[in-house]
Simulated scan of single mutants.
Amino acid sequence: MAELRALLFDLGYTGVATLLNSGNAVFCAPTGTPLEHSATIAAAISSRLKVEVPVIVKSARELEAIISENPIDAAVHQHSSFLVAFTQDTKALSGLAAMESLVVPPEKFAVGKHAAYLLCAAGILESEAAESLLGKAGKPATTRNWATVLKLQALAGERDA
Rank of each mutant, 00 (worst) to 15 (best):
A130G: 09
K139M: 09
L152S: 04
N145V: 05
P140L: 06
L125V: 13
T142G: 06
T148Q: 02
A147F: 12
E131L: 07
K151P: 06
A137V: 14
T142E: 00
I124E: 04
T148G: 06
L155M: 15
E131P: 01
L152V: 11
K151W: 03
K136W: 09
T142P: 00
E158V: 13
E128G: 07
S132T: 10
L125F: 07
T148R: 09
G135N: 03
R144M: 07
S127V: 12
A130F: 08
A154Y: 09
E131R: 14
A130N: 04
K151Q: 13
E126P: 05
S127D: 03
L150Q: 13
A141S: 15
Q153S: 13
L134P: 01
K139T: 15
W146L: 11
G135K: 10
E128F: 07
G123Q: 02
A141P: 10
K136Q: 12
G157C: 10
G138L: 07
P140R: 02
L134Y: 08
A137S: 10
E126L: 05
L150S: 04
G138E: 02
I124Y: 00
E128N: 15
A156N: 09
R144S: 11
V149E: 00
A156I: 12
L152A: 07
L152C: 11
G135D: 04
R144V: 08
A147Q: 11
A154R: 15
A156Y: 03
L150A: 01
S132Q: 11
A147P: 04
G157Y: 08
G157R: 15
L155T: 00
A154Q: 12
Q153A: 15
E128L: 11
L133Y: 00
T142Y: 01
G138K: 05
E128Y: 06
S132I: 14
G157H: 14
Q153W: 14
G157A: 15
P140M: 04
L133T: 00
A129L: 01
A129M: 02
L150H: 09
A141L: 06
L150V: 11
K136M: 10
T143Y: 01
L133D: 00
K151I: 08
T142W: 01
K139P: 05
A130C: 10
P140H: 01
E131I: 05
G123Y: 01
E158R: 14
Q153P: 05
T148S: 09
A156V: 02
A147K: 15
L133C: 01
L134A: 05
L125A: 12
L150D: 02
V149R: 07
K139R: 15
T148P: 04
A141T: 10
L152Q: 07
E158F: 08
S127K: 02
G123H: 01
E131Q: 12
E131N: 09
N145T: 07
A154L: 10
R144T: 07
A129G: 03
